[in-house]
């Protein structure tokens, strides 16, 4: 097994053994979505109107809670140094970490989101678009989260800090994803929105690991 795949396999195995970590992130996602009908009242039209934004904003917030899994524990127990000395370039190490993070956070959210959308009365035309925006958007969230998590290794209040620095950078993803779902609900074309999301993903795949690798280099120094 190549070192790149070995890092992914290691993180997946750890995630499976410490399953409550993932479950808590997903539970947060579900609970916060459920708060909106309770706060706004159960009017179906209103919920359908806000469903795309609620689902995406909540998914972003839930993801913020999961980033400390990426490097914080490895940094505290000495595992990060071992990973850095594995011979794998730090940028590829960051990419492997991002892939494992997406498989354990982005992918389960992708599965959960349509179910939650039912509870928010999302327009029936918009389900596939919701899934498509999450499929293109959540990998970007994982990639940016890797950059943020690498930057805050060893910082005080790292969990809040990572949200503060990553959320503004994810605003474009939020805008294009939500407007795509809204367009689909209104029966308009969604191609342009998805192309923008795809372009952001395509640019993030090489650039975010480079930045995260540089950040890890500084974290080890």
């Amino acid at each position: 097994m190549s070192p790149f795949l070995a890092v992914i396999a290691r993180d997946l195995r750890l995630a499976r053994r410490q399953g409550t970590d993932i479950a808590m992130t997903l539970a947060f996602f579900v609970v916060v979505v459920a708060l909106f009908p309770l706060g706004l009242g159960p009017t179906p039209e209103l919920l359908a109107r806000i469903a795309p934004a609620v689902l995406w904003v909540t998914a972003l917030l839930a993801a913020m809670l999961s980033f400390d899994r990426l490097f914080q524990q490895d940094s505290e127990d000495g595992g990060l140094e071992q990973l850095a000395l594995s011979g794998l370039p730090l940028s590829l190490l960051a990419l492997a970490k991002a892939v494992a993070h997406w498989l354990t956070t982005g992918l389960p959210m992708l599965v959960l989101a349509p179910l939650l959308a039912v509870s928010l009365n999302l327009a029936s035309d918009a389900y596939w678009t919701l899934v498509a925006t999450l499929a293109l958007g959540t990998p970007v969230v994982s990639l940016f989260g890797t950059v943020g998590a690498a930057l805050v290794v060893g910082a005080r209040r790292a969990g809040v800090l990572v949200a503060l620095i990553v959320l503004p950078l994810l605003i474009p993803v939020l805008i294009f994803a939500v407007s795509a779902i809204e367009a689909a609900s209104a029966g308009l074309t969604i191609r342009v929105h998805l192309l923008f999301l795809g372009a952001i993903l395509a640019a993030s795949i090489p650039l975010a690991p480079l930045a995260a690798g540089a950040a890890l280099r500084q974290a080890l120094d």
């Binding site: 930057l151 005080r156 950078l169 974290a219």
Partner: peptide, 27 residues
């Protein structure tokens, strides 16, 4: 705000400065 919070979040000022530099470039 994110930059200012990040550079001041470390006990080692060099570490904060380097993290901040990467963030400024990403931004």
């Amino acid at each position: 705000l994110g930059y200012i919070a990040l550079v001041n979040a470390f006990d080692d000022p060099d570490r904060g400065g380097r993290a901040g530099a990467v963030l400024a470039l990403v931004g």
